[in-house]
């Protein structure tokens, strides 16, 4: 006779991992994504505690660095108080960069929020109502997509006027089609599924179906796109700032700082180097996290 062991009810059965935990585990295994996340957390901390972290105010002017340039501390003729040197107006560069993190994160958040909300709205309308609504909305999205995003953003800013707020609105408008298309595609795959029919039969109204039945199941691709466009939003807003149509001069926005520094490339190269490096590192961090999230949320795309 062989012993047959029957698992007793008391024995612990391994519980299924919750989806969010699964995503986190997959993300944790991705070195690039974790590096990106670390940088982002540091940036958020720097932005929140800028008043404590930054050695000086972003607008404090040191006269001794106006008459004579103050390079970073590893160069000759530097002032030990200014680690990354001072700009042409005599303001501490490191402090301005730390305060600049606030602007970049703020820009990313606002742009992604506006474009995500509008994109989801258009995508849901398109996917649920089909017909004329679908055609009109999707053709409008095609039109926006056919103009290169930076050019469209410039044209919108040319009309609304320069400034950080208008730049953010302009950049946000150019991103709406991406979200709208993703949301619509997700809605179209979800709608024929049984749980939607069940909910419909149970008497759920269109609004309820849209927002609480279907939308939560469409979020994965939208979250990935949101992370990735956080980085492009920072890039595009900085580009507008660089061209002179984004945040305006005394603001320590990184792109705007570069615009001011262009003419100083020969005499004060550090004023050009560091703000751009800050943009690159931030954008890279968000792209790394976005790539990792995509792999974690959508195993089909994993290569």
């Amino acid at each position: 006779m062989t012993d047959i062991t029957i698992p007793s009810a008391a024995e612990p059965v391994s519980r299924p991992i919750s989806p969010s935990r699964e995503v986190w585990l997959s993300l944790k295994a991705n070195k690039g994504a974790m590096a990106g996340l670390t940088v982002i957390v540091l940036l958020i901390l720097a932005a929140v505690f800028a008043d404590l972290v930054a050695p000086f105010s972003y607008s404090a002017v040191f006269k001794e660095c106006v008459t004579k340039a103050c390079p970073p501390i590893w160069q000759e003729g530097s002032d030990s108080r200014f680690i990354l040197g001072a700009d042409s107006v005599g303001r501490d560069l490191l402090s301005r960069l730390i305060y600049g993190a606030r602007y970049s994160l703020f820009i990313g958040t606002i742009v992604v929020t506006i474009s995500l909300a509008a994109g989801i709205l258009f995508g849901l309308l398109s996917g649920f109502f089909r017909g004329v609504v679908d055609i009109l909305v999707m053709r409008a999205m095609d039109i926006i997509l056919s103009v290169p995003s930076l050019l469209l953003a410039l044209a919108i800013v040319a009309i609304l006027g320069s400034g950080l707020l208008n730049a953010m609105i302009a950049v946000a408008i150019t991103y709406i089609p991406h979200y709208a298309r993703l949301a619509r595609a997700a809605v179209l795959t979800e709608l024929p599924k049984d749980y939607v029919t069940a909910s419909r039969v149970a008497g759920a109204g269109t609004l309820r179906l849209m927002l609480s039945t279907v939308l939560p199941n469409c979020l994965a691709p939208l979250i990935v796109q949101a992370t990735l466009s956080f980085s492009t939003a920072i890039l595009d807003a900085a580009a507008l700032g660089f061209l002179g149509y984004g945040a305006q001069a005394p603001t320590p926005e990184w792109g705007t700082m570069l615009a001011d520094a262009r003419t100083l490339i020969r005499s004060m190269p550090w004023v050009v180097t560091f703000p751009g490096l800050a943009i690159l590192i931030t954008v890279l961090a968000f792209n790394l996290l976005g790539d990792g999230l995509r792999d974690a949320l959508d195993p089909k795309l994993k290569r």
Partner: peptide
């Protein structure tokens, strides 16, 4: 390269 702010890349 994908994350590069190309206006800064040019200056660099």
């Amino acid at each position: 390269g994908y994350s590069m702010p190309i206006f800064w890349w040019g200056l660099l």
